[in-house]
């Protein structure tokens, strides 16, 4: 039986600079709760972020944190997982960082299936830079950089993740932190890449997709006879938007190996553990062997 930890274990003293009412508060709270519920201690986890309002999150937790350059948290997280497979690695970044600047890394992570969890704070706008339209902004969305309305169709992370081979795809709403915490927990427990796209109102710059806007549209897949292992059904759900927006696990399969499962040199154990062991008991030829395993 897992002993639940106190979420306050993850509290930090840093001053939080998010706008009052920002959905990121709920994401922070839910992540702490999910880790505590799974009895994962701060030293056993790493939170990797990019650039953006939501990417300030690692600074607001007592946990291993790594703020990368814009759009790059996924490769850094994958590398950390390869170096220390025992670590629980969670990526937290916004829709611009993930689906825009880091779009290629997003697609590659879906097909690569590293055992990491990605929480995307999807507020459909660039908030930190004061309100430009983002990849997930709906067509026609008016911002400072789209004064006549966004011309492009919105990026659909659910369908792209499914097409690219992601093994766990979920969607949550920041206005329902308990449900969000539950999905984050499921994502962390999933062996493989887990995407949790969080619909997160930007209360300052996005006056369309508000808490009220989402409340009128969201529904829960758990409350319907929905089978998340059915890929065709997931494809249909992935395209629901505007009128009805499904929350919950859209798709999951536990039948594929993780990326780490298929890296031969990891069969000899965690590289970090081996390096620590070698530092205590130096054997130069084994350093070379460890290095060659990754070449």
């Amino acid at each position: 039986m897992v002993t639940r930890l106190d979420p306050k274990l993850f509290d930090a003293t840093s001053e939080i600079t998010w706008c009052a009412g920002c959905g990121d508060f709920a994401i922070l709270k839910a992540l702490k709760l999910a880790l505590a519920d799974l009895s994962i201690e701060p030293h056993q986890a790493l939170v990797v972020s990019g650039i953006g309002c939501g990417s300030k999150l690692p600074d607001y937790m007592t946990i291993n944190g790594f703020m990368t350059i814009h759009g790059r948290p996924l490769p850094v997280a994958t590398a950390a997982k390869l170096a220390n497979p025992d670590l629980h690695v969670v990526v937290v970044n916004g829709d611009g960082d993930s689906y825009g600047i880091g779009g290629n890394h997003f697609v590659q992570s879906c097909r690569r299936n590293p055992n990491i969890t990605q929480i995307v704070e999807n507020n459909q706008i660039y908030g930190l830079t004061k309100g430009q339209y983002s990849p997930t902004s709906d067509k026609g969305f008016v911002t400072t950089t789209s004064p006549d309305g966004a011309i492009e169709l919105a990026f659909n992370p659910m369908s792209v993740a499914l097409a690219a081979g992601a093994t766990f795809i979920a969607r949550a709403f920041a206005g329902e932190p308990k449900h969000l915490a539950q999905l984050i927990g499921e994502g962390i427990q999933h062996r493989g890449y887990a995407l949790i796209d969080v619909l997160q109102p930007c209360v300052t710059f996005n006056r369309i997709n508000t808490y009220d806007w989402y409340r009128k549209r969201i529904y829960h897949l758990e409350e319907e006879a929905y089978d998340p292992t059915n890929r065709e059904a997931a494809w249909q759900k992935a395209h629901e938007w505007e009128e009805r927006i499904p929350l919950g696990v859209l798709y999951r399969t536990d039948e594929l190996p993780t990326y780490e499962d298929q890296v031969p040199t990891l069969a000899d154990g965690s590289p970090v553990s081996r390096i620590i062991e070698l530092s205590r008991n130096p054997r130069p030829q084994q350093y070379e062997s460890l290095k060659e395993g990754f070449l």
Binding site: C19, A20, G21, C22, G23, F25, A26, K29, A30, L33, T129, K130, G131, Q132, T144, T145, A174, G175, E176, P177, K178, H179, A181, P201, V203, T204, F205, R207, T210, Y211, D212
Partner: peptide, 29 residues
């Protein structure tokens, strides 16, 4: 939702405020 807190409560209200002001000449926002 038992985790619904004052931050979320504020979110519903802040959305109705005009929280942006004059033009910013530095970054165009």
């Amino acid at each position: 939702d038992p985790l619904f807190d004052s931050h979320l409560f504020l979110g519903w209200v802040v959305s109705t405020l005009d929280a942006t002001g004059a033009r910013d000449k530095t970054v165009g926002g």
